[in-house]
């Protein structure tokens, strides 16, 4: 990177005071307009979780909340009827957790080890194998649906959360290996050589030298995997049904079925619940989220 970067220099801070103030005013005005557009949907939905149903039906989603009440949240969580069962989204929320947490942990651990091997224990053909693994990032899921259905059926994991975990681990390892391998490339080879001369072997170097340097990429991988798996819909809707479905599939199941009376306020609360875990992770680890984006995309 250059000695001084563009970030050190504020182009708009030159010239006359009046010019500077006008320029800054335009910048902030535009930013505010865009920010309102980006925040609008989430604000609207949040507001509607609090409104009584008849109010929504009468005036639509875009209206000032009257008689706010938190009761729809409770209903959405535990008593709302989806596909005949009236247990709210709590079951599907837990399904998603039971799927996303193990799949995230397993794929991240595998990615760390693979990345370590493919960057620091390179052997003939290692780059080719790395290419093969990362092709999984780009493979459209439609190419894998029928084979997966057959595999899951034959190992007895049809319509199980374990089956979804397997699917997400295999797909996720492509991502985590890509992240970790590229991150580990920046660790100097001399460190590994020094450790080998110091008598450390494969696992000891991994545990004592590489893992202690890994927290940034572990955070990136965990955020990226958890968000991706939580938000995934296609595998969830095809490989599971009924009360085994993850929350994305459940949301489509109740809000997509256009017939019957709509409970917009409860549905809005359910939608917010589906969005909350990844949003929470994003707000807590935003910096790493961006870093994951950059390293995943620029590669």
């Amino acid at each position: 990177m250059a000695e001084t970067t563009h970030a050190d220099f504020d182009a708009l801070s030159t010239g006359s005071l009046r010019r500077r103030i006008t320029a800054k005013a335009i910048v902030y005005a535009l930013l505010t307009v865009f920010a309102l557009f980006y925040l609008m949907p989430i604000v609207i939905i949040l507001a509607n979780t609090l409104r009584p149903l008849d109010d929504i039906v009468r005036t639509g989603f875009i209206a000032w909340p009257a008689d706010p009440s938190l009761s729809h949240w409770a209903e959405a969580w535990s008593t709302f009827c989806i596909g005949g069962t009236c247990e709210g989204v709590s079951r599907y929320f837990k399904n998603s957790l039971a799927m996303a947490i193990p799949a995230t942990i397993i794929s991240t651990m595998l990615g760390l080890i693979n990345g370590y091997i493919l960057s620091k224990w390179r052997f003939r053909g290692a780059d080719l194998l790395f290419g093969l693994i990362t092709l999984g990032v780009f493979l459209p899921p439609q190419m894998t649906l029928l084979p997966w259905a057959w595999v899951l059926g034959n190992v007895g994991l049809s319509n199980t959360i374990s089956g979804l975990i397997l699917v997400h681990v295999v797909q996720g390892v492509s991502f985590t290996t890509l992240f970790c391998r590229n991150y580990f490339l920046a660790i100097p080879d001399d460190l590994i050589k020094a450790a080998r001369i110091d008598g450390a072997g494969f696992w000891r170097i991994f545990r004592r030298i590489v893992l202690p340097l890994s927290p940034p990429i572990v955070i990136v991988a965990v955020i990226w995997q958890f968000t991706g798996i939580w938000n995934e819909f296609l595998f969830g809707t095809i490989f599971t049904s009924g009360d085994k479905q993850p929350i994305t599939a459940a949301i489509v199941a109740f809000s997509g079925s256009g017939t019957g009376e709509r409970h917009y306020n409860v549905e809005a609360a359910a939608v917010i619940m589906a969005a909350l875990p990844p949003l929470f992770i994003y707000l807590v680890g935003g910096k790493y989220f961006v870093r994951g984006l950059t390293s995943g995309a620029v590669k």
Partner: peptide
Amino acid sequence: AAPKNRDIAMVFQSYALYPTMTVRENMSFG
């Protein structure tokens, strides 16, 4: 023979100090 079995020590151009360990741990690692 593997490096560890050659009874050698090496000083690298980049020093290759283990960044997550203290100086003492760097010295005791081997």
